[in-house]
Design a binder for these strands. Structure first.
Lengths: 145, 145
DNA sequence: ATTGAGATTTAGAATTATTCCAAGTATTGA
DNA sequence: TCAATACTTGGAATAATTCTAAATCTCAAT
């Protein structure tokens, strides 16, 4: 667990390069901040933590770095999308598919399935609701490709 | 499918009452708007559609109505939460548990499971990523209860 | 090492989504 | 009918995110 540092920056450099993105000290620093406390911080929290080791970093850069990390597959965004909340009057069990191209959100019916059974949580957690969402290309957009 | 109207308002009235909320023409109208086009509109879109039949309705009321509908279980919010995006450097397959009480987000490891196999989508959809998120009480908060 | 092209960072303005507020209005139960 | 309370409204306020233009950095080719 110690010396995760170099591993981190090497992996980061490769990953970024693979996407045509450049490795920068800010990106590495932001990544390190994320690795340090695994508590799913908001961009604002990342900003505040990042400033400790890099006082001049700006909020815009934090967003930029987070985007870069997401693009190169080192970080996940925990939310369906960063835009407005959407509303759905279908209360049957189902999940959602959001098209990355056209932005449409589709209902996907749950297969007969034993999915429900599989959604087990560790002891102590008391789940009330859950949501499954997928992203990718919808039939229309997949065709135009 | 026709005459869904009265059914709609009856159900609405009961549901609202059960939560100590009052039935109002605005709430019914907003619900009707949601039932009309099942395309997961944003609050802004609901507002624009609602204005057609109720020109004086305000954006604040639309938000209020949507909240009421969500509270009484007739509508779902399609997003983990309406606050800031969160970032997670854990790229292993896992899902998230968000505590409604303290707001913390936990990683929940995927059980060995055949969950993956169950995530089938209808023909034509090309999923790239998916996310499973649950909400409820975390172990700490569940205890203090 | 130098250099030029293009990517990145920065601060702050702008935009977008959502919530708050105070005043007027509607609904409920007595 | 009346009082209490919830709801609606328009607009202001806040919060999250994106945009902008100028300065700086990185890369790859000299």
């Amino acid at each position: 667990m110690r010396d995760q540092g170099n591993q981190c920056s090497e992996q980061l450099g490769e990953r970024l390069a693979a996407r045509g993105l450049r490795p920068t000290v800010q990106r590495e620093h932001v990544y390190r901040v994320l690795l340090q406390d695994r508590d799913h911080p908001t961009a604002e929290q990342v900003f505040m933590r990042a400033k400790k080791g890099m006082p001049d970093i700006s909020m815009a850069t934090v967003y930029n770095c987070l985007d870069a990390l997401v693009k190169c597959g080192l970080v996940k965004e925990v939310n369906v999308d960063r835009a407005a909340m959407r509303y759905c009057p279908n209360m049957h069990e189902h999940w959602h598919f959001r098209c990355d191209n056209c932005g449409a959100v589709y209902d996907i019916d749950l297969p007969p399935s034993r999915l429900r059974l599989e959604l087990k949580v560790p002891k102590g957690f008391q789940p009330k609701t859950y949501e499954i969402s997928m992203r990718g290309a919808c039939p229309n957009c997949a065709q135009d490709n």
